[in-house]
Simulated scan of single mutants.
Amino acid sequence: MFFTTLSKASLALLVASMILVLTQKAEAHSYADCIDWRFKDPKNPSWSDKNGACFGYARRFPLKAKLFAKLDSDDPNRHYQQSHKNPDPDHSLACSDGKQGEEPGADETMGKPISAAYTGTDKRGRKVGPQTVSKPGGQLCVRWPAKNHAVPDEKNQPVTIALSEVNPTKDPTQLQFLSNIITNLNYKNCSDTKLNTDIWPCGGCFKLPTTLKPGNFVMQWRWKLNSNEWYTSCADIDVRAK
């Protein structure tokens, strides 16, 4: 009865709007928004901007470029989906070069020097976030946007956190990262769930190994959405002696 009262133009507009909404939800993909998130009140942790702050970011992460959770529509988009070929994601480029992959994403290659990925501006002239500084055994809390994938009817795919050896001269391969996964985090560990499911802030905390030597380590955040569909973010951790 409702549709019979609509004109053809109105019906076409309604259908187009519904398709757009469904497409936006289907194409919403996550990424590491913060590598060193610190809660204002650790006894009542929340991942929202009003309840904490970020002290370390992924490589060339633009500060204040867009609202939280909206960098998947940035130019270039922040999320990097590894290639389905070569011959599978376990052999794909571990950190985005902005060119390869099913969805190339932003450039997260290693800076030369390391600090170059955390100082100055990105290619669009936007100030980038600082590098994470920690210590052996130090706690890091990583934040990411839910992007509609933390709802009850979706499978909870864990986030894996992996580290390189100390002071690498180039980014590890994906297989090298897979050989040194230090923790798995609950993707659906979100707060502020009364908001739109696209922008739920989520995250997890872990401790770096106590055996780490002082130096630079490459950290990879990796998350599986669907079969053979992996997303990664890369950051450098400056580990200093206690």
Rank of each mutant, 00 (worst) to 15 (best):
P201E: 05
N216C: 04
D36L: 01
H29W: 14
N167C: 07
T197I: 05
L163K: 10
F2R: 05
Q81G: 06
L212H: 08
C205N: 11
D74K: 13
T160N: 10
M1F: 12
A26Y: 14
H91L: 12
I237L: 07
E229H: 11
W144A: 01
N189T: 07
S30V: 04
T197G: 03
F61R: 05
Q100N: 08
P113A: 00
V15R: 07
K242F: 12
S83F: 00
L195F: 03
G56S: 06
I182D: 02
Q81K: 07
F2I: 00
T183I: 00
S30H: 04
D122G: 02
Y80R: 02
A150G: 02
T173S: 13
R143V: 03
D238F: 03
D122C: 04
S233T: 08
V159F: 14
A146L: 08
N51G: 06
D171K: 15
Q131R: 14
L20Y: 15
Q157G: 00
R222D: 06
P152W: 13
I19T: 10
K170T: 14
P42V: 01
G129Q: 07
D33M: 00
I182S: 07
E103A: 12
G111L: 09
D72T: 07
K112A: 12
N167D: 14
D90Y: 08
E27K: 10
N44E: 10
A150Y: 04
A26P: 02
S83P: 01
V151R: 15
C190H: 03
D153Y: 15
F39M: 03
F206P: 03
I182H: 14
T160L: 14
I237R: 00
P62H: 15
R126A: 11
K207F: 12
Q157P: 00
E165I: 07
G129E: 10
A53N: 11
D41Q: 14
V142A: 05
R240Q: 09
Q174I: 00
K135P: 01
P214G: 02
D88P: 02
N180K: 15
Q157W: 15
P136D: 07
